[in-house]
C-alpha cells in the first residue's frame, strides 16, 4: 500500500458529503449543551468513545473482509435512532460514489448493487479503505477522526468559534483517538472468529435523542 493513500481518504475535502453533517453538534448547540470550546471538547470526547468507537470497529471489520451486509445489519442494531440510520445511509451512498470513482473494486460494486440507497457509512468507508489497499489500522483512524472532526468544524460555523480553538480541541483528543483506534481494531480482529456480536455497541443517549429532535426541525444548517 501507499501511505499517502490514507491522506486522500482521510482528507476533509474527500468528496463524500461529510461537511453537510454536524454529528449531532447542531442539536446540542441549539439545546444549549455546547456553548464554548470546553463543551465542544467534552462533546467530541463523548461522541468518540461511543458512536466513534462503533463506527471505527465497523470500518475495521469491513476492511478485513467481513461480509458488509452482516456489518450493515449490525450497524442498524447499533443505531436505534431512525434519523441517524437515514443519515448514515445517505453518507454511505455518497462515500460509495466517491470510492468507486477513486478506487474501483468488485467488492464496492457488489455492495452498491444490493444497497442502492446506501449502506451504513462506516461499512462503506472500511470497504473503500480495503479497495484502496489500506488496512484495518488505517480505517479505524479515519472513522474515529471523522467522528470528532465533523462536530468541530460544524461548531466553528454554528457558534463562530475560533477555528484555532476547534483545532486545538482535536489535537488534545489525540490520546483518546489512539485508544479508540486500538480498541476498535482489537474488536474487529475478533469478528471473523466470534461474529458481529464482538463489535462494540456503545451509545450516547443525548446523541440519539438530539438526532430525533433535529430531524423534526423545519430549517437547519446541517443535515444531521
Amino acid at each position: 500500500m501507499n501511505r499517502a493513500t490514507l491522506l486522500v481518504l482521510a482528507d476533509g475535502r474527500f468528496p463524500a458529503g461529510g461537511h453537510a453533517h454536524s454529528g449531532g453538534a447542531e442539536a446540542a448547540v441549539a439545546a444549549g449543551r455546547i456553548k464554548d470550546a470546553a463543551d465542544l471538547a467534552e462533546f467530541c470526547r463523548g461522541r468518540l468513545h461511543t458512536s466513534g468507537l462503533v463506527a471505527a470497529a465497523l470500518a475495521a471489520a469491513a476492511a478485513v473482509g467481513v461480509d458488509p451486509l452482516e456489518l450493515d445489519e449490525a450497524a442498524d442494531a447499533r443505531t436505534p435512532s431512525a434519523a441517524l440510520r437515514t443519515a448514515a445511509r445517505k453518507l454511505g451512498r455518497q462515500m460509495m460514489r466517491a470510492a468507486r470513482a477513486t478506487w474501483p473494486s468488485a467488492e464496492l460494486d457488489a455492495l452498491a448493487s444490493v444497497r442502492p440507497k446506501g449502506a451504513h457509512q462506516p461499512v462503506v468507508l472500511g470497504l473503500a479503505a480495503r479497495s484502496a489497499g489500506l488496512g484495518p489500522e488505517d480505517a479505524v483512524y479515519v472513522a474515529a477522526y471523522e467522528s470528532v472532526s465533523g462536530p468541530a468544524t460544524a461548531v466553528v460555523r454554528l457558534l463562530s468559534l475560533d477555528p484555532f480553538d476547534a483545532t486545538a480541541v482535536l489535537a488534545r483528543l489525540a490520546p483518546d483517538l489512539d485508544r479508540v483506534a486500538a480498541d476498535a481494531a482489537e474488536c474487529a480482529r475478533r469478528v471473523p472468529i466470534e461474529g458481529v456480536d464482538a463489535l462494540p455497541a456503545s451509545s450516547a443517549p443525548l446523541l440519539d435523542i438530539g438526532a430525533e429532535a433535529h430531524a423534526a426541525w423545519a430549517v437547519r444548517l446541517f443535515a444531521s
Binding site: 446540542a28 455546547i34 467534552e42 470526547r45 468513545h49 450516547a204
Partner: peptide, 8 residues
C-alpha cells in the same frame, strides 16, 4: 471520557 458531557 465524555460519558457525562453534552453528547451523552
Amino acid at each position: 471520557g465524555g460519558w457525562d458531557g453534552p453528547a451523552a
